[in-house]
Design a protein around this nucleic acid. Sequence first.
DNA 1: ATTTAAATTTAGACAAAACTAAAAATAGAT
DNA 2: ATCTATTTTTAGTTTTGTCTAAATTTAAAT
Lengths: 218, 218
Amino acid sequence: MTRSEENYLKTIFHLGGGDSKSITTNAIAEQMETKPSSVTDMAKRLSEKGLVDYVRYQGVSLTDAGVKTALSIIRKHRLWEVFLVKKLDFTWDEVHEVAEQLEHIKSEKLIDKIDELLDFPKYDPHGDPIPTKDGKFQERDEKLLSEIPINSQGVCVGVKDSSVPFLKFLDKNKIALGNTIKVMDKEDFDNSLRIQMEGKEMRISHQIAANLYVKKND
Amino acid sequence: MTRSEENYLKTIFHLGGGDSKSITTNAIAEQMETKPSSVTDMAKRLSEKGLVDYVRYQGVSLTDAGVKTALSIIRKHRLWEVFLVKKLDFTWDEVHEVAEQLEHIKSEKLIDKIDELLDFPKYDPHGDPIPTKDGKFQERDEKLLSEIPINSQGVCVGVKDSSVPFLKFLDKNKIALGNTIKVMDKEDFDNSLRIQMEGKEMRISHQIAANLYVKKND
DNA sequence: ATTTAAATTTAGACAAAACTAAAAATAGAT
DNA sequence: ATCTATTTTTAGTTTTGTCTAAATTTAAAT
């Protein structure tokens, strides 16, 4: 299992290829910032190895073995992210790049010990669930902030977009996971929201609200 | 700087190529379990990049830039070894393989934070000195146990051979870094030693004594 | 049912890093 | 000084992972 193969499996999983849905080479190429022809080559290789089902001109989907491998890499990525934040004081916008490297370290003992050191966390710093050793996800009943009705409230539990600019924006506006947010009002014109958070009121655009996951209280 | 290039620089350094001594392609190939022809190819590449001086049929030595790079990799390797032992309860015979992977992670912040987390250790689990950020070694006045005279004693501070079998042998015989060892007697016939350690007396072969570093007390 | 546009694959090339086999240079022995 | 034996390099090949350009297939539109 090479580093590149692992990255392809991870990407296919993130694009939904774990649910036996066919992902096009174009979609994969775009996500990985590479060319569709390169993806075709890799699709053949992964297919040979029994990690994906590949039908020419149709796309790829992960086999059971492929899902298992993808989940183990995602598990490592997210555990390392927690480690970087909790033990080394990285900020949540700094961890991704380093975790992209650490996720490829091959040592089962290492990642199990990291898991233990962190006291078996269930979510990474962006609120994404960490698969268990046997590949199970703990799903959470979460909704996008943009989709809950006026006057309802919830706890902020995750971000959909975990790009550096978005995370920095949230920091600057003191929006953090764990905060309770109440939707006071919606503006029909631009879908912006008036919210109350930690005692203060503020207005946020639809684009922000559509990238914040909350767990509803009432 | 590819992983392979880093491994070559590290090996050349360990073979003494940091002291502007010429290391033969054969010696490097043997150490890295590869072929001399492969080493020649790499020697040319590293030479192009200004990391080694390479003279055909003579061998290679590290340039200043090459030494600097080699030390930074060795620093990372040894810090990760300390991390694995101190924070994740790895044994000293388990750390090398994983550290070989971790040493190639590219993030200055990461290794500096690991250094800080470990409280800036000076030696790795095998007693090898950890270079500082600016590439300085803290040398220690150490001698091989086989080379100190009868009736002198010292503290065990490192191993010359850090192979798994040797380390396991030491564990089995309760020989650990930090132990005080006194040389009671030497056997002319096979150069074996009678030693006193932590209150007990035992006999060890020359091969063992020649792979243990001690810091003399008297 | 064609035509066209878009998506996808093939073919051929390249770079990194390795190998094997053959050629060339060096060093040691006479 | 010459001849070997050894070391080292060269030349050509392989694998992985990528690319470009050309060809092919699919899907959408008339």
